[in-house]
Amino acid sequence: CHSECLGNCSQPDDPTKCVACRNFYLDGRCVETCPPPYYHFQDWRCVNFSFCQDLHHKCKNSRRQGCHQYVIHNNKCIPECPSGYTMNSSNLLCTPCLGPCPKVCHLLEGEKTIDSVTSAQELRGCTVINGSLIINIRGGNNLAAELEANLGLIEEISGYLKIRRSYALVSLSFFRKLRLIRGETLEIGNYSFYALDNQNLRQLWDWSKHNLTITQGKLFFHYNPKLCLSEIHKMEEVSGTKGRQERNDIALKTNGDQASCENELLKFSYIRTSFDKILLRWEPYWPPDFRDLLGFMLFYKEAPYQNVTEFDGQDACGSNSWTVVDIDPPLRSNDPKSQNHPGWLMRGLKPWTQYAIFVKTLVTFSDERRTYGAKSDIIYVQTDATNPSVPLDPISVSNSSSQIILKWKPPSDPNGNITHYLVFWERQAEDSELFELDYCLKGLKLPSRTWSPPFESEDSQKHNQSEYEDSAGECCSCPKTDSQILKELEESSFRKTFEDYLHNVVFVPRKT
């Protein structure tokens, strides 16, 4: 048989008469490798580009789960590009990614509803959504962080984005990388972005840091009482949809009607710091009717980097990364020049730590249904340095008659930039024990000054392991946590139920 035959053949030295091919099969003959313009397919066939392209389009058009959109890589027609490569849609070739590779997620039936953290986790790592997304989240724990972890990498949506009755959302900033909504599939009414009845939605994105392009379709905003109209108009300008909307697409009466839409800028007039305090004062603000001013709200939190936005980490279910302080308005003076500047002394802060701070007014709604208010920009203030805590785990070892090696770990709280350490030492008198000992005694162990690591005695271990207080009263049991108490109650309830079950099964009433 021919060298490319495997198993047997019907005619000697003829690659077209093989029972099976050793390498690849091409047009009725066995070959060692697939010549151009053919590609290896499933490690035994040679196919042309049209064959591989037909497989790709067949799966793409069917949208069946589990099928493969075949691509070409290293002269092979394979189910998908290997790690580190992405497909070129024009020629199906796998090309190296520039940075992290995109991950295209194809949605069944063309859309997916995100109504819980669990459903959001199914899209973790996706960068391109081939379909439409509907966000409908009523509640949950730590929602802002969970949504950002699972949806934060999405850069492109081919269909539309719909935010509907998501009472738990305060902001859409968890879509931190969303840059493009194509609108290839539109919501009824030709809408590519749809926001309806979101009672706590206050911000779409921080438009000073976020760009969003909507290729096709219109915007729809109705019944978002805490979303200011200025935020919607800003989205029109940034996304390129200005002029597409009709009169009733953006409701003037049901958007922002319960919001404090600040239209003035508060400026800080005085800032002073110490290692654990920050004193702030800002310019006074009074609405047209000074009785509408209820006070100020001061927001602050630790910020290692200057990239904080107002609604980071917030949701309507209680999660809030900001510390909020309510401040009463100052006494009002008739003389504008003698107006008191409101302020606040922030206490209990960490030394040498940068804080993000902003302040906003708290006002009631005027009778004319106009909203007044003022808010400052987010500023960054760093507390002063102070003395560091003591170095940890000092170790001293003498390696000769004239040297001592000293080692330690950095302090747990540096409280500033540590530039150097101060080492103090003092000579001590020799131990009298060394002169009084009889060095001729056998088995004498000389006193040693070398360091030995501390260890816990058996008594201390027994005390720590004991669940009861000892007789001397030195140790006591740790208080039980809520989960331990709940577990004990469940076990007790189970024992009672099981005992009742045994009584009912074992003891049967005697027939009379």
Rank of each mutant, 00 (worst) to 15 (best):
S173D: 07
R165A: 11
I278H: 00
F268N: 00
G256Q: 02
T383V: 02
F220Y: 15
S389N: 14
T254N: 09
Y380H: 01
A303R: 08
N211D: 08
S166Q: 04
I379G: 03
V363G: 15
L147P: 01
T127W: 02
N136S: 06
W205K: 11
S376I: 01
N320T: 12
S319Q: 14
G125M: 11
T383P: 00
W408H: 00
Y300V: 12
N130G: 04
G343F: 03
R281W: 01
S173V: 11
T254I: 09
T323R: 05
S132V: 02
H341L: 07
P304F: 12
L265R: 13
V397R: 05
F221L: 07
S319A: 11
W352A: 14
L279T: 01
A385T: 14
R281M: 08
K162C: 13
Q121I: 13
P342K: 09
S269V: 03
D206L: 13
E187L: 07
K253N: 07
V117C: 02
L151F: 09
C261Y: 03
R291E: 01
N320H: 10
N320S: 08
K226H: 02
N141L: 10
D377K: 15
R247C: 04
S401P: 08
S132L: 01
N399V: 09
G125I: 15
I154P: 00
V104H: 08
P351G: 13
S119V: 12
V238F: 03
I134H: 08
V104S: 07
V325L: 14
V381P: 04
A356I: 08
S274I: 03
N130W: 05
G183P: 02
T215W: 01
T323F: 10
S333R: 09
A385W: 10
T213S: 08
D393C: 14
K162H: 13
K234W: 09
S401V: 05
L186D: 15
W322Q: 03
F290P: 09
L212F: 11
L252K: 07
K177G: 03
F358G: 05
N142P: 06
P394Y: 05
L133S: 00
A303Q: 12
D257E: 04
Y355E: 00
S319P: 07
S119F: 04
I157G: 00
T273R: 06
D197R: 07
L147E: 00
T213P: 04
Q199N: 11
V359E: 00
T353N: 01
I250H: 15
I181L: 10
I214S: 05
T254F: 08
R244Q: 11
K350P: 13
V238N: 15
T383I: 01
L349R: 02
T371I: 15
Y355F: 07
Y372Q: 03
S116D: 06
L349E: 00
R179E: 03
N200G: 03
Y160D: 01
L279K: 08
K360Y: 01
K407L: 07
A149T: 11
K209C: 12
G295N: 02
G217P: 02
S274D: 04
L196S: 13
H341K: 07
S116G: 12
Y191K: 07
G373K: 06
I379S: 05
W344A: 13
E283K: 07
S321L: 13
A303E: 03
E246I: 06
I157Y: 00
G373E: 04
Y380M: 06
A149E: 12
N320V: 05
T241H: 08
W352F: 12
V325A: 15
L153I: 14
P336M: 02
K177R: 12
D257Q: 02
L147W: 04
L349N: 00
I327T: 12
R332L: 08
D289C: 14
K234S: 07
G373F: 15
Y194P: 01
E368S: 09
N150I: 14
N248I: 09
Y305K: 00
F358S: 14
D393L: 08
R138E: 09
F311Y: 14
T254G: 13
W408K: 00
T323M: 13
Y305H: 11
Y167K: 15
A356E: 04
S171C: 07
E184I: 08
E231P: 01
T213C: 07
G159V: 03
Y191E: 10
Q314R: 15
E187M: 11
S119N: 08
L331T: 13
E368W: 12
I405N: 06
G256P: 06
M346I: 12
F296V: 05
F299I: 13
R291H: 03
I378P: 03
L108H: 15
L180W: 15
T323Y: 14
F221S: 07
K407F: 04
K350A: 07
I214C: 03
I188R: 14
E237A: 08
I154G: 00
D367P: 05
S396M: 03
V324T: 05
Q245H: 05
F311T: 14
S319K: 10
V324I: 02
L252E: 04
L392D: 02
P329Q: 15
K177Q: 11
L279P: 00
L108G: 07
P304V: 01
Y285L: 14
L172I: 15
S116Y: 05
T185P: 12
S402L: 13
E156M: 13
S319M: 13
E187C: 15
I404V: 07
I163T: 06
W344V: 08
I114P: 00
R332S: 10
S333F: 15
G110S: 13
N211K: 13
L172E: 00
C317F: 10
V390P: 13
S173C: 09
E262L: 04
I137T: 14
V397G: 12
D276M: 14
N340K: 11
N190Y: 07
R281S: 14
S132G: 13
C261Q: 02
F193V: 10
F174H: 08
W322D: 03
Q199R: 14
I134G: 07
N263Q: 05
D289A: 10
E262C: 13
N334W: 10
P388S: 07
L178Q: 00
L204I: 10
C228P: 03
E264W: 14
I214V: 11
N200F: 08
I357C: 14
T127A: 05
D115T: 13
N340L: 11
I214Y: 04
K103D: 07
W207V: 12
L172N: 01
K407M: 15
E310H: 12
L392Y: 05
N307F: 04
D315E: 03
S192A: 01
N211E: 09
P336Y: 00
G125R: 04
E264H: 05
P410R: 12
I278P: 00
E146R: 15
S173P: 03
V381L: 15
L169W: 02
E156Q: 04
T323S: 08
D393G: 05
L298I: 05
R370K: 12
V170A: 09
E302Q: 13
I135H: 00
G110V: 02
L392C: 07
D289F: 03
L349K: 01
R291W: 15
K162M: 07
Q258F: 12
R281T: 07
G140E: 12
T383Q: 00
L392A: 06
K226L: 06
I188N: 02
P388R: 02
W322A: 09
D312K: 05
S260H: 09
F365P: 11
I404N: 01
L178R: 00
K277G: 15
P391V: 03
A303W: 05
F311E: 01
L212C: 03
